[in-house]
């Protein structure tokens, strides 16, 4: 059985206009293996962040379940840490305190020295030595998300959930941090579930990319295997013969579904298993 299973999860919101619930996505089933890096791409409003929040336990699904390591995961927990789009660092805490809060929660039995050493290790991992006592206000967007990543990795969760982690970072810095994330992931081989808009980011980082149709009533239509061998880096990955095939396929999918406008998934049966695409 897979490490993380999202089993026939659907989400409905009560409609503001009245007249029944609005379906955000229907019957999403994912099976993610231990150590796998899986990304979901879709247009805004397809519910991909909602899906991530459901896996994190921060929102509840209307139907279906999330099974982590053979057990149902309900409610938030230390085994599923989120890296937030807007960083979600506590502005009243320093970099050190932000990470230490997480470390102390994950390892309550640790002494002060052990916590300090662990926090410093992860601060060093993201290259933020010297910024330990700075508050988030004093950091650039890229540095803030490095802290967010350090915080997430520091508690060694079973699953890392990345919610458009680089969306608010300028393009040049984004590339650098993506590369850093590749290295961190290579070192830890965490199981990662990421949500993004960025096709290049998805190809660089992922083992598989799931393509969601537009909402409402969106679903996972295709799963693209990224066969480009690891280790990858930004400049070598684009040299790979499959890179642009994959990229074009994903972009065609996104454009096709965008052009359908609202209800882009209409007419497509929702009970069909997603198409697996491999180059």
């Amino acid at each position: 059985m897979s490490f993380l299973v999202v089993d026939h999860v659907s989400k409905f919101f009560p409609s503001h206009a009245g007249g029944g619930d609005v379906c955000i996505f229907r019957d999403v089933t994912l099976k993610i293996d231990k150590g796998e890096f899986v990304t979901v791409i879709g247009h805004s409003g397809c519910g991909k962040s909602t899906l991530l929040n459901i896996i994190a336990g921060l929102e509840t699904q209307s139907e279906g379940g999330v099974i982590l390591n053979g057990r149902e995961a309900s409610g938030p927990g230390l085994d599923r840490m989120v890296v937030f789009q807007n960083f979600a660092l506590m502005p009243w805490m320093t970099v050190f305190e932000n990470i230490a809060l997480a470390v102390r929660s994950a390892y309550p039995e640790w002494g002060r020295d052990q916590v300090t050493a662990h926090v410093h290790k992860y601060i060093a991992l993201v290259g933020l030595q010297g910024a330990e006592s700075k508050r988030p206000i004093a950091l650039s967007g890229g540095m803030k998300q490095r802290v967010g990543l350090a915080r997430a990795f520091s508690i060694e969760p079973k699953v890392l959930l990345l919610d458009e982690p680089f969306a608010q970072i300028d393009a040049l810095t984004r590339g650098v941090i993506q590369e850093e994330l590749v290295q961190m992931w290579n070192a830890t081989r965490n199981t990662v579930f990421m949500v993004t808009h960025d096709v290049d980011e998805a190809i660089l980082l992922s083992d598989r990319v799931m393509l969601m149709t537009n909402g409402p009533s969106s679903r996972v239509a295709e799963i693209v295997d990224i066969t480009i061998p690891r280790p990858r880096s930004r400049d070598t990955v684009i040299e790979h013969p499959h890179y642009y095939k994959i990229r074009n396929h994903v972009i065609h999918f996104l454009v096709r579904h965008a052009s359908h406008g609202e209800g882009g998934a209409q007419g497509e049966p929702s009970d069909v298993a997603p198409l697996v695409v491999r180059f």
Binding site: A56, G57, L58, G75, P76, G77, L78, R80, M81, V82, F84, N86, A88, M90, L101, A102, S105, A106, I155
Partner: peptide, 14 residues
């Protein structure tokens, strides 16, 4: 209060 802060607190099981 930003709900992300409460989300972090919930994930960290404070």
């Amino acid at each position: 209060l930003k709900k992300e802060y409460l989300h972090v607190a919930a994930i960290l099981q404070l």
